[in-house]
Each structure stands twice: as C-alpha cells, then as structure tokens.
Design a protein around this nucleic acid. Structure first.
Length: 721
DNA sequence: TTGTTCCAGCTTTTT
DNA sequence: GCTGGAACAA
C-alpha cells in the first residue's frame, strides 16, 4: 500500500501529529480542524508504516457514534477489517474488561449493566427500605452524590467519618447501595469505570497483560475525561510514553458531569516527554464565523490558547435578530428556514440550537404549523421507554434471577395480584438475610405467612419465569423476545383499550423484536458472552438515540450539548438571553460561566456558511412574563461582524389569523402616541411609542398598574378606548 | 388496583 | 404554565 494515501490529504500540523514517532502526544484540535481525521490517520500510519499490529492498538471515545465512525473510517482508509482493533467507549471497553476478568473484578459472571434510570429506581427503593424520607433525601441528589464519588474513585469505605450527621447518613446510603448492587450483580455506569480501574490497579497480572498488549493508546475528546477515566489511562500506559490524546480545552462542556479539563494540564506533568501539536486551520466555517468565535472564547481565562483560521473567504456577516418575544423568535427562524428551502436549500443542512430542551416547543409549533418536517434530538431513547424496559427486565431476570432491579420491575407488571404488602415482605426478608428478592420470595412462600391468594400469585410468578426460561432456551433471539413479550402478558396489557398510547407501545415492542432480529451476534466475540447477554449489554450501553430514524429531509433541533461534533450549513443559535444562556445557575460562578461560554463557542463553530443569533426581549418562562437582557456573549462579538436583521416586510402567505388581525389594525392606522388602550391582563394604559410594521408592529404602553411594557400588536389583545 | 387530583419543580446528558 | 410523580379516594 502506498503511504501517500495516508498523509497526502493532510496539512502540515496534521501530518506532524500523524507521523510522529511513538511518544506521549497532546493534539489540541480546534473545532472543525480535522480531529477525527488525525486520529484515524495516526492509527492507519502506525499499522501500515510502523508495522504495529492492530491487535496492539486501543482507541477510546466517549460515544458509540464516534467509535463507530472511527472504526469505519480506518477500515475505509486501509481496506482492512478493523475487527481485532479495540475501538470503543470508555464504558464499553471497561465492560469488556470486566466480562473477561469478572472473577478478578469480584463480580459474578452474570452481572448486568444498569442504566441511570435503573440506578435511580434502585436508590429510591433503597431509601424507602432504610426508612429515609425522600423529601429530605431526594433520590436524584443521592444518585448524583454516589456517581460523583465513584467518578473520583472514592468508595464508601474511603469516605472519612466527619462529625456532620448529614454526611454520615449519606454515607450509610452509599454503603447500602454498594452492598445491594454487589448482592444483585448490578453495575451502574460509574461503577463500570471504577471497577475497571480497580481491576488493573489490584491485579498485577491483568495490568501487565494489557500494558504489554496495548503498545498504542489513543483517546478522543480528552478534555471530557473524568478523574477515574484518566487514572485508568495512566495505569494502562504507566512507564511507557504511548498515550496519544486529542482534545480541545475550549470545547469542554461536561464539567458538570465530572469531566476534568485539568486532565489536559496534568497530562503535561505526568508525561514529561510529551509533544503538543495545535491544529488551528479550520475547514468548516467562514472567516467571519471564526473571527467571532475566537473573540468570544478569548474572554475565558486559563486557556491553552488557540486561534482558528481558514483560507476560505470571510463569507456573510452573522445575522442578529432581536425578537419581541419567543413566539416572534420562532416565527422569524421558521420564516428564514422556509425562504432557504424555497431557494433550494436542504432542510437537514439547517439546525436550531438552544440551551435547554424546553425551548424546542415554540419552534416545533411553528414548524408544524407551516408543515415543515423537523426532528428533535434528545428525546426519550428507544431503550429507555417503559414498555421496552419491562420486556428487557423479563429477559434479564431469566438470565439472572438475583437481579433485584428487574425482579421488582416486572413482579407486578402486568398486575398479577402481588401488591405492595407482599413486595414489602420480600424486601424485609431480603434485607435481613442479605439475599436476593428471588430467594426471599421462595422463603416467603415456604413460610406460608401470607394469605393463600398472595402466596399463590407469587408461586405463579416464579413458575412463569422458570417456564419461560425453559421455553425460550432453544429459540433464536428475536423469538425469545417475542415469546417473552407474549407470555409475560405485556402484550395483552398494552392491547387493553384503556391503556393510553397502547398502540404506540405495542409498536415499540414489535420494534424490539425486530431489533433482536437485526442484532448481529458475534459468536467468536472476545468476551465469551452469550447472545442474550450481548443483547442486554447492547441495550444498556449502546442504545441508539431513536430506533426508527426519519429518512425524510428534516430541520434539525437540538440542545447545544448534543450539537457538539456536528456541523450545518445554516445554524440558528436561539435564546441568547441572560438567565437562559448563560443560564441563571451559572452567572454567579466564574468557572461555570466559562463553561457556558465554551458552549457558546461550540454552538457558533457548528455553522459552516450562515450563523443566525437571536434573542427575545420578552419571554414567557414558567408561566411568567420575563424581560431578559441580551446575552453577554452577544456583546463579546465585534459589532462589525454582525448585521441586525428585521423580518421581511412582506410575508409570502399571510394566511394565519394572527397576521390577518394585525393587518386589520394596520389599515385602521389605529395607534397614535398618547392613545388610550386597555389590555385584558394589564388593564388601562397609554401608548408611548410605536415601532415596526406588519406582523412586527409593536407598541410601548404605560399601564396604570402594570407599568411600561412593549407589546406586539400581532399577539397582544388590545382594545382602543 | 385504578383513576383522579394535587403539588413541586423547572439546565445541559452519554454511558 | 406545564409536566410528571405521589398521594389519595373509590
């Protein structure tokens, strides 16, 4: 193979990184500077030129999507199967290690992965078991606390006793949670990482094996690693300068989730022989967009320092739209998108990016009203749906009867006459004797202390699980799922007409059977896992965003966080208001404010050609009218890069009632300065100023009781007095 | 056991 | 102002 195909398409900085001799390397890759490309070509270079065996290469990412893309691109570039290359997410790789070395990790072979929903339910149950008031001990907070401890590598037994009773109580909960998970063979996401770290730390033979095996270790999005992930990487590369990390300190937006931007600084200390390469040439955005983004991010302190540039032209100015309210903002955005499509633009080249999910609604309504296809990212994921989790819980319980979380999930779903009382009894027995709920159920039956009816119901349930296990043994995976869904009574439950959204749930269950059918089981997988276990791990760890992707050409709606790594020709960054973006919770804290600014930087650098920034002068928030200030980030953009835009005076089709109404007002020319008006909510007032025209006409009114307000004629219900 | 009503809460989210 | 969850009644 010709080496030139690997390095030909690279710029100087990229080539330097790709062809560097094996050494600790930090590639600071700005947005759109070819970060993935460097990683992919680096690995290809090592295999083809340095003669490194694919077997010796490890590449770690944060998302399954990134892992998949990287694998695909390597295979493409080298025309080889990257089968024996370890590319995966931190969690995926940790999971694999734990499966292979379950015993040394002190885990049962049948351990199951819990997602955060499962984890929360376990914690809730635990709290009520221990008689903790969940008003005083919000389960969400406890979950956050436990995960934060684990992210830092702190076990309950490491926590130092303080005199503080709150701390002590919290520790009791953490400890009980650990015990419960151990007993049930349950592993949460944070535990995967922590356990994998401990596995290497405490088993010299395992550590040595992997240190020898992986001569090259690569990490994507290094700025997002947390303490334990970095500690794990350090163990794996200890004494060898073979850690190649790619990241961008300016795009670190997951600090609130435990990511330590400091790891980039520590890296330089821990690997003194490292080399740093900056990738600053951007292949995505126009010069104007880059200049503005650079300017915004320079307001942050303690950066590694980096300035994006492009040899493409400046392009258009950034458009700024000051909306009257959130309705108007949505109206403007949708109007622009329709104009774009009319001129032949592709809808999926357009993204609406917002700070918080709640903001999507206005845009959805307007898009729907105009019949513009759109897709909102970040909704409930397929494998997170209740009906899917129920079905999988049966599968898990059959695979591992001591999985208490699954046991409790399905014991009375569908209802089979096992009420709260019986379940309480089982919990007590389980707690007192340190056994699983399944074992407790058997004990309870043998005790014969419950009513005959309850005892019977319990026997029926246990028999159901046992018989299902027998039934499905010989079936293919999709048949297994199908049989379980039917025999468990889940199908019948959702077929019941009274069940709301029953049809949808049935469809989802059918989709699950379909997913099982499509699931590619690798018999020779390195982890010696059975098909069912593989499928369950897949559901927990790799659950795709939404199962059935819309193939239609759609406008893309998502939060700024989920936009990271993506690019669009046209980007609308909306809701640029103090209190919203930056969010209220972040404005008093420099660190958090800087993370918001990085988020803004991420959002702006998503745009390839045209960037629109919008804010509303009034916004309904929590049912209250607010009058936010424009975001400080707007002021950080040089004015000469901005262009204030107004809505086009003529709107192509004035069909909707709102416009018709404002048109009527216009023809009457009804508002003059000093005109007395009355408003349904604000009462009587006097017109002070008039601005704009058509659907954009607005008036400033001094209300007797409510004070001075700007109102849009198109929306305000005003009567002339 | 189910359906209703009431009440708190309300960034960002992958694994 | 809306939504999801919990508490309550039937």
């Amino acid at each position: 193979m010709d080496v030139t195909t690997i390095i030909n398409s690279l710029n100087d900085a990229q080539r330097l990184a790709v062809t560097a001799p094996s050494q600790a390397m930090l590639v600071l890759a700005g947005a759109g500077s070819g970060k993935t490309r460097v990683l992919v070509h680096r690995i290809a270079w090592q295999i083809k030129v340095e003669g490194v065996s694919p077997h010796s290469i490890l590449a770690v990412t944060f998302t399954n999507k990134a892992a998949k893309e990287m694998r695909g691109r390597i295979e493409n570039l080298l025309s080889i199967s990257a089968h024996n290359l370890w590319i995966g997410t931190f969690h995926g790789i940790a999971h694999r290690l734990l499966r292979r070395h379950a015993q040394q990790a002190r885990l049962p072979e049948t351990f199951q992965v819990m997602d955060s929903g499962d984890q929360l339910r376990v914690i809730k149950r635990l709290l009520s078991n221990l008689n903790f008031d969940d008003k005083q001990w919000p389960p969400k907070e406890m979950q956050w606390y436990i995960n934060a401890q684990k992210d830092e590598g702190i076990r309950a037994r490491h926590c130092v006793e303080t005199g503080d009773s709150h701390d002590r109580q919290r520790l009791i909960i953490y400890k009980a949670y650990e015990e419960l998970c151990d007993r049930s063979g349950l592993v949460d996401f944070a535990e995967l990482l922590l356990r994998a770290h401990e596995l290497l730390r405490d088993n010299a033979d395992v550590l040595e094996f992997y240190q020898k095996r992986f001569t090259q270790v690569h990490v994507d999005e290094f700025q997002d690693t947390n303490t334990i992930q970095y500690a794990w990487l350090r163990l794996l590369t200890d004494g060898k300068d073979n850690l190649f990390v790619v990241g961008d300190d300016d795009q670190s937006i997951y600090g609130w989730r435990g990511a330590k931007i400091e790891n980039i600084y520590s890296f330089q200390r821990h690997y003194p022989n490292h080399q740093i390469i900056k990738l600053e040439q951007n292949y995505r955005s126009t010069g104007t967009i880059l200049k503005a983004s650079n300017k915004v991010i320079t307001n942050n302190t303690g950066r590694m320092g980096k300035e994006l540039w492009t040899d493409a032209g400046d392009g258009d100015l950034i458009s700024l739209y000051a909306a009257f309210n959130e309705q108007d903002e949505a109206y403007f955005v949708v109007d622009r998108i329709r104009a774009w499509v009319n001129e032949g633009g592709i809808r999926s080249d357009t993204a609406i990016l917002y700070r918080s999910n709640a903001q999507s609604r206005q845009f959805e309504e307007k898009l729907m009203a105009t019949g513009t296809p759109y897709i909102v990212y970040g909704g409930l994921r397929f494998f997170d749906r209740a009906e899917i989790k129920n079905a999988l819980a049966y599968l898990r319980l059959i695979a591992n009867r001591h999985d208490d979380a699954s046991f409790e999930r399905v014991i009375n779903t569908p209802t089979r006459g096992i009420g709260a009382k019986a379940i309480d009894e089982m919990r007590n027995i389980a707690r007192d004797q340190s056994v699983s709920l399944w074992s407790a159920a058997i004990l309870l039956i043998n005790q014969r202390t419950m009513s005959a009816r309850a005892t019977n119901a319990l026997i029926v349930f246990l028999e159901l699980i046992k018989s299902l296990e027998n039934d499905i043994e010989e079936l293919t995976l999709d048949e297994k799922v199908k049989r379980i869904v039917e025999k468990s009574g889940l199908m019948a439950l959702y077929q019941n007409e009274k069940m709301d959204k029953g049809d949808e749930k049935i469809e989802n269950l059918e989709e699950l059977v379909n997913a099982a059918k499509l699931f590619e089981f690798d018999k020779d997988n390195e982890d010696k896992l059975g098909e069912v276990d593989m499928f369950l791990s897949y559901a927990a760890l790799e659950a795709g965003v939404s199962q059935s992707e819309e193939s239609e050409d759609c406008v893309q709606l998502m939060t700024l966080h989920s936009a990271k790594g993506l690019e669009f020709k046209q980007v609308f960054l909306v809701g640029l208001e103090e209190g919203l973006f930056p969010s209220q919770q972040s404005v008093d804290d420099t660190g958090r404010l800087e993370e918001e600014r990085r988020l803004c930087y991420v959002g702006m650098t998503r745009a390839m050609q045209q960037l629109y920034l919008t804010y509303a002068e009034s916004r309904r928030l929590y049912g209250r009218e607010t009058y936010p200030r424009p975001s400080r980030f707007l002021r950080e953009i040089p004015a000469e890069l901005l262009q204030e835009v107004r809505m086009r005076a003529t709107i192509s089709r004035p069909v909707n009632a709102v416009q018709a109404k404002s048109a009527k007002f216009q023809t009457q020319g009804s508002y003059k300065l000093g005109q007395r008006v009355s408003h349904a909510k604000f009462g009587e007032g006097v017109v002070l100023q008039i601005e704009g025209e058509g659907a954009q006409e607005r008036v400033q009114i001094n209300f007797k009781s409510a004070g001075v307000k700007w109102l849009m004629l198109a929306y305000a219900k005003l009567d002339i007095l």
